[in-house]
Design a protein around this nucleic acid. Structure first.
Length: 460
RNA sequence: CGGGGAAUGGCGCAGCCUGGUAGCGCGCAUGGUUUGGGACCAUGAGGUCCCGGGUUCAAAUCCCGGUUCCCCGACCA
């Protein structure tokens, strides 16, 4: 009867099974592209909305830019086009005729948005510009994986322009903090903030920061990147402003992004052998009510109480669902656990008689997670549980991450450590070191954590 | 893009080697009995066997080409 492969047996298969059983997606007829079904999209929307609020809180506004970008735009920034050209989808025909200039489907929007910035910005009074885009982009990936690497993926990309490097750098670090906080407070996902090696920098950036999260198979997942573009794009697109001192200067720009990959990572971090375990603040359904009855008479009474409870919880702002399907309670318990609903509310004849309910926490399996409680004050009780479940998921993820990070000070220690999980090591920021890591150990330098002392020797 | 595996009803699979009426479990529909941890009985519906070509009296099965998925590598958010 097991529909989900145990994580320990085959983590990749487990991930596929969970997404399928939770009814999150469907395959599309085009390679590397997926259909996201309502349960999956609602989860994405919830994560998006919370992140969007954080963008608004830090002064950003949303806007929309074209899907199609003139090929020549990509070419203006040399390393940018070099980095992206292998994965571009190019439109060569339109209206039945070959285009004079091919259009690329955006792999990211730096070029087209900075083209506009050049026209909008004349004076230091026009700065800063703080814009975010929620859209999808296409990158011609050779090897795809559900949500973690799809050819078309949904994400947000922030693009800002500033008068000074101090300001733009402050933006870059601020947005990295936003990603980190979003992970911790909204998604119960801890991550390590740091700087990418020069080898791993975004094409065209002078510096790239990232937050890295550890998934259940101990692999790393980039949970947000923030790029300091310096004046590279400003020069390429001629974004100049007249400063207070009446001299013309190039802007300092930034970009930062987070894709639905993070949703896949969140699933891999929290899920267990029963299926999804969703943090309450992002769960499409936060609480599900399962009615329990035998006779029609019981059913009438139970359903009346269950619906009353549903309305109470809904009025309190809880995303609640009453499962009135004609299935056995046991079936429903397993079904909703598979789909990761944080709290289950059981209402049976005994509860009707006692004005009580039984609550079950998704993060604590079996009877240990059951709580018998009065119907009075239920909404507050459940909201309190949400906070506890969030904290518990975060604690578990933090403990897992901590338990799987080794420290290494020699190549031998590093070599042994990477077999176990992550390794904190004093690496030099040298492309030769990155290459050596890949060739000899088949690992990558995820980032240089901010709280790590810089490497001094040349042992690497 | 290189190497390996796979595609048969909504899901998971058998059948293919050795060509001959397309099967199983779950799910779905209807009726009945059930219901505090994945219920049971009965009846029934549902399939271009991934697509296109070829061989053959006859192709899910053999041959050629293509598409998609999964795994391993190179690349990437």
């Amino acid at each position: 009867m097991a529909k989900i492969t145990p994580r320990s047996e085959d983590f990749n298969q487990w991930y596929l099974d969970v997404l399928r059983e939770a009814d999150m997606f469907d395959y599309a007829p085009v390679r590397g592209c997926i259909v996201v079904k309502p349960y999956g999209w609602t989860l994405y929307e919830n994560m998006r909305d919370l992140l969007d609020r954080r963008f608004k809180d830090t002064g950003h506004s949303n806007a929309a830019f074209p899907l199609l970008i003139p090929m020549s735009f990509l070419k203006r920034e040399a390393s940018h086009v070099e980095g992206f050209s292998p994965e571009l989808a190019v439109v060569t025909h339109g209206g039945g005729e070959e285009l004079v200039e091919p259009l690329v489907i955006r792999p990211t929007s730096e070029t087209i948005i900075e083209h506009s910035y050049a026209q909008w910005i004349k004076s230091y009074r026009d700065l800063p510009i703080l814009i975010n885009l929620w859209n999808s982009v296409v990158r011609w990936e050779m090897r795809t994986k559900l949500f973690l690497r799809t050819m078309e993926f949904y994400w947000q990309e922030g693009h800002t322009a500033h008068a000074t490097h101090e300001e733009s750098w402050a933006e870059v670090t601020q947005m990295l903090d936003v990603y980190h906080t979003h992970g911790v407070e909204d998604c119960a996902v801890p991550s390590v903030k740091g700087r990418k090696s020069r080898n791993e920098r975004f094409a065209g950036a002078i510096n790239t920061l990232s937050v890295e999260a550890m998934m259940g198979d101990k692999r790393a997942l980039q949970a947000g990147t923030s790029h300091d573009l310096g004046q590279n794009f400003a020069r390429a697109f001629d974004i100049k402003f007249l400063d207070r001192d009446n001299t013309e200067k190039h802007c300092w720009t930034t970009s930062w992004g987070l894709s639905w990959r993070f949703m896949g990572g969140m699933i891999m971090i929290h899920g267990d052998d029963q299926g999804l375990r969703l943090p309450p603040r992002i769960a499409p359904i936060q609480a599900v009510i399962v009615p329990i009855y035998k006779s029609d008479d019981e059913k009438a009474k139970v359903m009346e109480a269950a619906d009353r409870i549903r309305l109470t919880l809904k009025a309190a702002g809880i995303k609640v669902k009453l499962d009135d399907r004609d299935e056995t309670p046991g079936f429903k318990f397993n079904d909703w656990e598979m789909r990761g609903v944080p709290v289950r509310v059981e209402v049976g004849p005994r509860d009707v008689a006692n004005n009580s309910v039984a609550l079950a926490r998704r993060d604590i399996p079996g009877k240990a997670g059951k709580i018998f409680t009065p119907q009075e004050g239920l909404a507050d009780k459940i909201k309190g549980l949400f906070d506890e479940i969030h904290a518990s998921l975060l604690r578990q993820a933090e403990a897992f991450q901590k338990a799987n990070i080794r420290e290494a000070n020699t190549w031998e220690e590093l070599k042994a450590g990477v077999q176990e999980g992550w390794v904190l090591a004093p690496l030099l920021d040298d492309p030769a070191v990155d290459a050596k890591l890949k060739e000899e150990l088949q690992v990558t330098n995820r980032n240089f954590p901010f709280d790590q002392a810089p490497a001094s020797g040349t042992a690497w």
